[in-house]
């Protein structure tokens, strides 16, 4: 029975990892078709030479950095507030944002922006994408930072207060520095989910704000193109590395 269990687990690991590994391997294929013809970096060159794709990648970086900075700051403060005293008025809506189907988040934000912009005379663009990403990544930040705070010894902050620090000083000079690994882990996580999002982004993006996942989606729909494999490989390796670092920091 133990051997059967190991065999099942090995096949499941293959099921989880082989599709991505094969996808990455074929990004190094010389042929345009799914027949191995030898090693080549042509598709990476093709992707780098594709102006539209590079512009989308740049947009994705800008959006992800912006959304990460905003959601990490707001989410960290929120986690700190909730650590001082829990409040279901925050934890309930935050878990609801996590459970809301992406397509519903997407259309609700689209409807909201369209409504608000009638009065503000604005249009969909990079700013709406950043706002949308903040809305769905904040709950992840709160979750990660709050988990870190729960391992933090309250008496350290109390000691700072007893020694005459103001509340702000105690937070800024005692609690926050201790939280930093958790905050950075949360930021890396927020960056990853922001960089990867397609469904919500595609609903709230304007003409000038196509992101990398949107470009990849369009290319994937058009048919086989090994340049998609090349970009995918870079994304999988890059985001995978960020997640590994994030996990490390979370466990420290």
């Amino acid at each position: 029975m133990n051997r059967l269990l190991t065999l099942t687990a090995v096949s499941l690991y293959a099921f989880l990892h082989l599709p991505l590994l094969v996808l990455c391997a074929f990004s190094l294929n010389r042929s345009r078709f799914t027949v191995w013809e030898g090693f080549s970096l042509d598709w990476y060159r093709a992707a780098l030479g594709d102006g539209q794709l590079m512009e989308a990648a740049l947009n994705s970086v800008v959006v992800a950095v912006g959304a990460t900075l905003i959601s990490t700051a707001i989410g960290t403060l929120c986690a700190y507030g909730l650590w001082k005293r829990e409040s279901r008025a925050f934890t309930l809506p935050l878990s609801l944002t996590l459970a809301t189907p992406e397509i519903v988040t997407g259309v609700s934000l689209l409807a909201f922006f369209q409504w608000a912009f009638r009065y503000l005379h604005m249009q969909l663009g990079m700013h709406t994408v950043v706002l949308a990403h903040v809305s769905f990544s904040i709950a992840f930040v709160v979750m990660v930072v709050l988990a870190r705070l729960r391992t933090f010894d309250r008496s350290l902050e109390e000691a700072a207060l007893d020694l005459g620090a103001t509340e702000w000083q105690a937070f800024g000079r005692v609690t926050l520095p201790n939280l930093m690994p958790g905050v950075i882990a949360a930021a890396l996580l927020a960056f990853t989910i922001s960089f990867d999002d397609y469904v919500i982004t595609s609903m709230v993006a304007g003409v000038d704000s196509e992101t990398l996942p949107m470009a990849l989606y369009a290319m994937a729909r058009r048919g086989a193109n090994p340049a998609v494999n090349a970009v995918s490989t870079v994304m999988v390796v890059g985001l995978g590395a960020l997640i590994l670092v994030s996990e490390r920091l979370r466990k420290r």
């Binding site: 990867d196 397609y198 999988v236 985001l239 997640i243």
Partner: peptide, 8 residues
């Protein structure tokens, strides 16, 4: 693999 990229 879960965290890397759903689209990919």
């Amino acid at each position: 693999p879960f965290w890397t990229s759903f689209l990919i």
